[in-house]
Amino acid sequence: MLRLYQTTVHSRLMLGSARYPSPQVLADAVKAARAEIVTVSLRRESAGERAGQAFWSLIRELGVRVLPNTAGCHSVKEAVTTAHMAREVFGTTWIKLEVIGEDDTLQPDVFGLVDAARTLCAEGFEVFPYTTEDLVVAERLLAAGCGLLMPWGAPIGSGRGLNNLFGLKALRAHFPEVPLIIDAGLGVPSHAAQALELGFDAVLLNTAIAQAGDPVRMAAAFAQAIEAGLAARQAGPIEPRDLAVPSTPVIGTAFRG
């Protein structure tokens, strides 16, 4: 069980809802992943198409908890205004806070992120900040009122896995009590298993599943990997060593002495 602010969830796999081949594949993938939390966004609505209304009906039918994001926002003002709009439309105080600082890597603008988080936390939002593994930024976000952190694994959609293992391990060690969710950059289930093995509490995925050849099967594979990674973490992995240690007992070895 994982506690995120006042909410307890069982699933360690959170899913984005974008880039699926069809709404039905999205719905099937959410079920295969056994996801309880799905991220959503806000975009300009065309009065003619009303695409947003159909999407919202689909998400509500899934019976999941939604986590609205502020994707695409490049300033504190845009992010805060989008958060207000999302709270009204989605009826939740949860907000996945993104303030993008650089377009090639979609790296968060951590200065704007801290500012926006401070404003939104003071207004009663429960902020899920999309951040880097930077320890000082993490401290500032927690001081601003965030009750959890969402460090990136790698740039959004890159599928590279955990890019900075040293930094991520340091973050985990530094904040043992803070829920840490790897958000973005994972490509294959072993990346997710690794995140859980390292002690991260959950992962948030989108592209790795949505753009897979068979998204529903990939969703199930990620769910299995996360289960395995969590079990491994709880079972206590051995420490890596530089030299070999024989696994077969050496006492009584034949032909010696």
Binding site: Y20, V40, R43, E45, P68, G157
Partner: peptide, 10 residues
């Protein structure tokens, strides 16, 4: 005027 509605997001 901005008129926004729910949309897919990651």
């Amino acid at each position: 005027l901005e008129v926004l509605a729910p949309m897919q997001g990651g």
